[in-house]
C-alpha cells in the first residue's frame, strides 16, 4: 500500500535530476529493491504508471532489480544467501548474523533524452 508513497519519492528525485541535466524526457529508470523490504514489484510498477502520466517520465521503462538477501555470520564469518524466513548462519547455525544485502531501496540510475 505504501508503494504509491515510495514511487512519489522516486518521481520527484528523478524529475529533479533530469531537469538539472537539461533533459526533456526520461526514458529509463533503474531501481534496486531488496527482497527483505515490504515493497512489492507489481505495486511499484502500477504506482509508476499511474503517477508518470502526463509527466516527463511518461512511457519510461522501469527496471527493478530485486536483491536477494545475504548475511554475514558474526561467529564463523561465513557469507551466505538466504530467503526471507531463515536468518541463522547456513554454515554453523549461529543466530548472531548481520544482514549485508536485501534491505535496499535505491534509485540506481536514469536514462534521459536531451533536446536536439
Amino acid at each position: 500500500m505504501h508503494e504509491l508513497g515510495l514511487m512519489t519519492g522516486v518521481m520527484s528525485s528523478v524529475t529533479e535530476a533530469a531537469r538539472n541535466a537539461g533533459a526533456v524526457r526520461v526514458t529509463d529508470i533503474t531501481l534496486s529493491v531488496g527482497e527483505m523490504t515490504e515493497a512489492i514489484q507489481d505495486a511499484l510498477e502500477f504506482a509508476f504508471e499511474a503517477l508518470s502520466e502526463g509527466t516527463m517520465c511518461e512511457g519510461a521503462k522501469l527496471h527493478i532489480n530485486m536483491v536477494r538477501p545475504k548475511s554475514r555470520c558474526q561467529e564463523c564469518g561465513a557469507e551466505y544467501e538466504h530467503d526471507r524466513f531463515h536468518m541463522t548462519c547456513a554454515e554453523c547455525g549461529s543466530p548472531f548474523t548481520e544482514l549485508i544485502a536485501g534491505k535496499e531501496m535505491q534509485i540506481d540510475s536514469i536514462e534521459v533524452d536531451l533536446p536536439d
Binding site: L6, G9, V10, S13, V14, A17, A18, A21, A23, L31, M105, Q106, I107, D108, S109, I110, E111, V112, D113, L114
Partner: peptide, 14 residues
C-alpha cells in the same frame, strides 16, 4: 544520456 543517482528512495524520510 545516463545519469547515475545511487540515491535511497527514502532519502528525505531517512
Amino acid at each position: 544520456m545516463q545519469i547515475n543517482l545511487e540515491q535511497p528512495i527514502l532519502a528525505k524520510n531517512d
